[in-house]
């Protein structure tokens, strides 16, 4: 099992997104660098639209992730309600 990772801008827009990720992926750890936050988690990170919307208090389209995303490591799956990054080993 290896870590997957996602790196997001450290700004107000990403704040709700980061909170949602940490909530839905309790095993994740964060590394803060100037301007960005890198989140690592064993094997899989799941981003749920519902949780993000709850954190932001407004509707959120999964593709809006492109506005906060800086980098990622892992295989991606994306649909209306979720965005996941995972390894298959």
């Amino acid at each position: 099992m290896s870590n997957v990772s996602i790196t997001l801008y450290n700004n107000d827009e990403s704040r709700g997104l980061i909170a949602a990720i940490l909530k839905d992926n309790p095993a994740s750890t964060t590394m803060r660098m100037p301007g960005v936050v890198k989140i690592d988690c064993p094997n899989k990170i799941t981003i749920l639209r519902e949780t993000v919307e709850h954190e932001l208090g407004r509707p959120w389209d999964v593709q809006q992730l492109h506005m906060s995303l800086v980098s990622l490591s892992g295989m991606v799956d994306e649909d209306d309600d979720y965005f996941t990054i995972a390894w298959n080993h």
Partner: peptide, 20 residues
């Protein structure tokens, strides 16, 4: 520079996924 750098990298995550 940091603004163009991170902004470019947000495209890169699409590119990386294409590569994979």
């Amino acid at each position: 520079t940091v603004t163009f750098g991170f902004s470019a990298q947000s495209d890169e995550s699409r590119h990386m996924t294409l590569g994979l």
